[in-house]
């Protein structure tokens, strides 16, 4: 409807999703690595997360460059100007954060490259040291994507302090979903030790993800509730995703139903037998692929709805 009028369109939406997912994967990977001891049960979570993290973030950054106005008129390297300045603009801070993020996450991934990488090998110390940097960097990038949008009073839909929190939780959730999806596709069946690790890690990730989804739902509820309870511009802005608004169906079906409720229901169904009855954690092949895919679609659609709604609404009155 407003597609051709959006100042920031699909490249920015994709970037916000991809950067969030990469940041979430890195923060998850690093914190799991730091939390787990030398047993190595959860080592593969850290490994998958480390390999995933730099890829979506780098793709997202390229998309951002393609979206620049100067790139469209043939000034292909004008974006270098970002590195000639550092100021308090969220975008400037974000540029430097992303640069460090990509650098550190590539180094961190490199420590997992040796075929026999395991806890306690010769790369253990640098891996752990880098992980200590990776956690704040991952959280920083995830939060920054929300701050970038939230910093402007001229966009009442975005101008909420809780938006950054929403994006952080969604980033962690999509990051975990990325790890789960990659592992579900790539893991080999047969070896009992590997199967045991896979089940333990699957349980940890699923149980973490359902907590994150619960928190995300709560933050989303607060975001909508506080906006709806105010009067004026913000209430007008939030009405586009509420009943009767142009983005209501997109938001409630794709973000809330497919992105939050259905994965949460599946995850609850999966973890309950072990949580309550100490049964083995078992996942059907179709579910272990569908569930992260649903989370990822929901994460993308959340960015789509937020970025679009922010740009089709504006302060009322002149």
């Amino acid at each position: 409807m407003h597609g051709d009028e959006l100042t920031w369109s699909l490249p920015v939406i994709s970037y916000l999703f991809l950067a969030g997912m990469g940041a979430g994967a890195l923060a998850t990977s690093a914190s799991v690595l730091l939390r787990s001891g030398p047993s190595g049960t959860y080592f593969n979570i850290a490994r998958y997360g480390a390999f995933i993290a730099p890829i979506p973030v780098s793709i997202g950054c390229f998309l951002l460059i393609f979206e620049l106005g100067t790139f469209h008129v043939g000034l292909w390297f004008r974006w270098i100007n970002l590195y000639r300045v550092i100021n308090l603009s969220p975008m400037s801070i974000g540029t430097w954060l992303l640069t460090f993020f990509i650098g550190v996450s590539v180094l961190y991934a490199a420590t997992f490259l040796p075929r026999n990488a395991a806890p306690g090998d010769k790369w253990d110390l640098p891996r752990r040291l880098l992980a200590w940097v990776c956690v704040p960097l991952g959280i920083g990038v995830a939060v920054y994507t929300g701050v970038l949008l939230g910093a402007m009073p001229s966009r009442p839909f975005w101008n909420s302090p809780i938006l950054a929190m929403l994006f952080l939780l969604s980033s962690l959730s999509t990051g975990i979903a990325g790890i789960m999806l990659a592992w579900a596709i790539l893991h080999r069946k047969g070896d009992p030790e590997a199967e045991h690790q896979y089940r333990e890690s699957g349980y940890l990730l699923t149980a973490t993800d359902i907590l994150l989804i619960a928190l995300e739902s709560l933050v989303l509820l607060l975001f909508i509730m506080y906006a709806h309870l105010t009067i004026g511009s913000v209430k007008h802005a939030i009405s586009v995703i509420l009943a009767g608004g142009p983005l209501a169906t997109t938001f409630w079906v794709w973000v809330v139903l497919l992105g939050l409720f259905i994965p949460a229901a599946i995850e609850l169904f999966l973890i309950m037998p072990r949580l309550l009855y100490q049964k083995t954690f078992e996942v059907h092949r179709s579910l272990e692929v569908f569930m992260p895919v649903a989370v990822l679609i929901g994460g993308f659609m959340l960015r789509y709805v937020v970025v679009t709604a922010g740009q089709i609404t504006y302060p009322i009155g002149l």
């Binding site: 100042t7 920031w8 620049l68 004008r78 603009s89 975008m91």
Partner: peptide
């Protein structure tokens, strides 16, 4: 200017635009 359009978003008066010639 790199043409990131952040200022277009931030202006409450919609006074800014992306110049299609200079980008």
């Amino acid at each position: 200017c790199i043409g990131c359009k952040y200022c277009l978003q931030a202006c409450p008066y919609d006074a800014r635009f992306l110049n299609p010639v200079t980008g």
